[in-house]
């Protein structure tokens, strides 16, 4: 197993109390697989990834749980030497990871020299190699970030992340800000790199269709918890959690015949409040009295995990979820 996250708890201190941004999330990243971490704003997906890297915001702390990398539990201190060399990161906006006052090449050389103990000459040769790997001409190493288009910047950020040959790549919405054609080019490139370099990847995204296109496994998060996870084909074709069903309905589909997108009414709960029962219950069309008390124990059926009281009835609920009327408030 490349990475295992076990019962992770991340708390942020805010003016109005503690926000439990991640509240007991568990998932694994098998070696050589691409795992999509999917959910809407505030579900804890970015926080989970930052926690894996040990780079939480100032007011955040790991309040419980374990992150196990290649069989060894790691914390903030022991993660630091692993960054770049073992665990690398690709941010959503490459503009924020690239320094505007240095050439892109200089920044990659810097990583190779400072972190990888390479000589300047070695680093320059390697930077050219990395650019070729991500489909950029090595002449562009002399350019500044603002001279790059959005897609080229994202390629450069990926080249930089791969500089020290990490085994795990964490990417936070790496294609969200890009146009569809560029997006597809980057996704195809990520898949090719993953196979060529035998990478394991975590891809944070709100976009189910990106997960469908690129990922092998998917972990669906809601309000700081994992509500469903499993192989992408299985989870998207036969979702077992009502939130996943609703998300699938709400997602635009170019090829479907449906002329309506069905919203999920309401909004996620305030994570500063004391929450009991299923967190999706207030928005769930299938809610029952039992859902609003106690903790929900996830059930696992052939690698497919579902945290829903009614998961035994999933097939019936899924059929009902296809009817837009089910979701009308």
């Amino acid at each position: 197993m490349m990475l295992a996250v076990e019962d992770l708890q991340i708390h942020y201190a805010t003016r109005d109390g503690v926000a439990r941004a991640v509240d007991g999330a568990s998932f694994v990243v098998p070696e050589g697989r691409i795992v999509g971490l999917v959910g809407e704003s505030g579900c804890g997906k970015t926080t989970a990834v930052r926690a894996i890297m040990g780079v939480l915001a100032e007011n955040g702390r790991r309040a419980g749980g374990k992150v196990v990398f290649k069989g060894t539990a790691i914390d903030e201190r022991t993660t630091r030497p692993l960054l770049w060399r073992e665990i690398a990161y690709v941010p959503q906006s490459a503009m924020s990871s690239l320094d505007p006052v240095y050439t892109v090449g200089a920044q990659i050389v810097e990583v190779l020299v400072k972190r990888g103990n390479a000589s300047r000459a070695q680093a320059k040769a390697r930077a050219a190699e990395l650019f070729e790997l991500v489909g950029l001409s090595d002449r562009r190493l002399a350019d500044y970030p603002h001279q790059f288009s959005g897609g080229m910047r994202q390629r450069a950020a990926i080249a930089m992340a791969l500089a020290l040959e990490p085994s795990l790549l964490l990417a936070d919405e790496p294609v969200t800000a890009l146009d569809v054609i560029v997006q597809r080019q980057i996704l195809d490139m990520l898949r090719a790199l993953q196979q060529r370099l035998k990478l394991s990847m975590v891809m944070v995204t709100h976009d189910i269709s990106v997960v469908a296109y690129l990922c092998d496994e998917v972990v669906v998060m809601y309000a700081g918890q994992v509500v469903e996870s499993g192989p992408v084909r299985e989870v998207l074709a036969r979702p077992r959690h009502p939130y996943t069903m609703g998300l699938r309905n709400a997602f635009p589909d170019l090829l479907s015949d449906a002329m309506e997108l069905v919203p999920i009414h309401g909004s996620p709960p305030d994570l500063r409040a004391e929450l009991v029962g299923c967190r999706f219950a207030p928005r769930c069309p299938f809610v029952q009295p039992a859902c609003t008390s106690g903790a929900i124990t996830p059930e696992v059926a052939v690698n497919h995990l579902t945290a829903c009281r009614r998961s035994a009835e999933a097939d019936t609920l899924r059929a009902a979820a296809l009817d837009p009327k089910t979701w009308h408030s």
């Binding site: 996704l187 195809d188 990106v210 997960v211 469908a212 296109y213």
Partner: peptide, 21 residues
């Protein structure tokens, strides 16, 4: 149209018919 991702993992997508920027 070919580049638009769809939320369905069973959908086999044809390769992008153009390259470049």
């Amino acid at each position: 149209v070919a580049a638009v991702p769809v939320p369905d993992a069973d959908q086999s997508r044809s390769p992008l018919p153009i390259s470049g920027n």
